[in-house]
């Protein structure tokens, strides 16, 4: 198989929360450019923590994370905002501004390309307003441009969130249980959209999922976490039927 250069690299990463909870324990692995990576694990295993260390929404305690060969630990202010600009994030709860229009929500994904005062007066260029329509069209929601965000269904809201992320021109998309609150049908549209962006635009996608079936269907590679540790890592071709059960064993079961 062709080996591409890693876009993200974890080197001996540890994360201990201020209350002493271990979030991540000695995590080392590379994520190659253009990969569709699915992270699975029990609730509390550290999936969200892992994802949020990549865009520094969470700080790590020790070790190093590099994104495009640069260590991200020391980024501050502008440098940190530029890091976040190239990393889109999708949330379980969509995190749209409910009272605002779909258009404003989508445009908010572009704010890091403007000085603060321009964002306040909503001075987006014509090109970016067209880009917003285009992004919405890519998630099949162009007709909802002027609808209020809270008038959309959950699946539609998640697609608006994806359109918002597209406005960043991201190289990486992090999705933290993006379909956990959706029904099977909308789950499929959202996952298909992510897969399409991965294949058409070459965006590296990292998704936390609870469903093993979904993981098998969409992933290029599956990694498993348990109690903050990386306990499984295989390309999809090598994932055998019973493999993932092992990840989902309760800690007590694992010891027995």
């Amino acid at each position: 198989m062709e080996q591409t250069a890693p876009i993200i690299s974890f080197k001996g990463v540890n994360k201990v929360y201020s209350n002493g909870t271990v979030g991540l324990k000695d995590i080392s692995f590379d994520i190659s450019r253009g990969q569709f990576l699915v992270v699975v694990g029990l609730s509390g295993a550290g999936k969200s923590t892992l994802l949020r260390t990549i865009n520094r929404m969470h700080e790590i305690t020790s070790g190093e994370i590099t994104v495009e060969d640069e260590s991200i630990s020391d980024y501050k202010g502008k440098a940190l905002r530029l890091l976040r600009r190239k990393i889109g994030m999708i949330f379980q709860g969509f995190n749209l501004i409910n009272r605002s229009s779909v258009e404003k929500n989508v445009l908010s994904g572009r704010v890091s390309y403007y000085p603060t005062w321009k964002t306040i007066f909503g001075l987006f260029s014509k090109a970016d307003k067209e880009k917003a329509v285009h992004s919405l069209a890519r998630v099949n929601l162009a007709e909802k441009l002027y609808t209020r965000a809270d008038e959309l269904s959950g699946g539609q809201q998640q697609r608006v969130a994806i359109a918002r992320t597209l406005m960043q021109d991201p190289k990486i998309i992090l999705a933290d249980e993006p379909v956990a609150s959706l029904d099977p049908l909308t789950t499929k549209t959202v996952m298909d959209t992510l897969k399409r962006l991965n294949q058409e635009d070459g965006i590296t996608v990292i998704v936390n999922l609870h469903s093993v079936a979904l993981a098998r269907e969409y992933a290029d590679r599956i990694v498993g976490l348990r109690a903050g540790q990386l306990v499984y890592d295989q390309p999809i071709g090598n994932v055998a039927e019973g493999d993932l059960d092992q990840i989902y064993q309760t800690p007590e079961g694992a010891k027995a």
């Binding site: 940190l80 995190n95 908010s108």
Partner: peptide, 14 residues
């Protein structure tokens, strides 16, 4: 939630 989203986009505090 929306604050988290805007922060992840790389927006300034204001």
């Amino acid at each position: 939630g929306p604050l988290e989203a805007l922060e992840s986009v790389g927006a300034t505090k204001i």
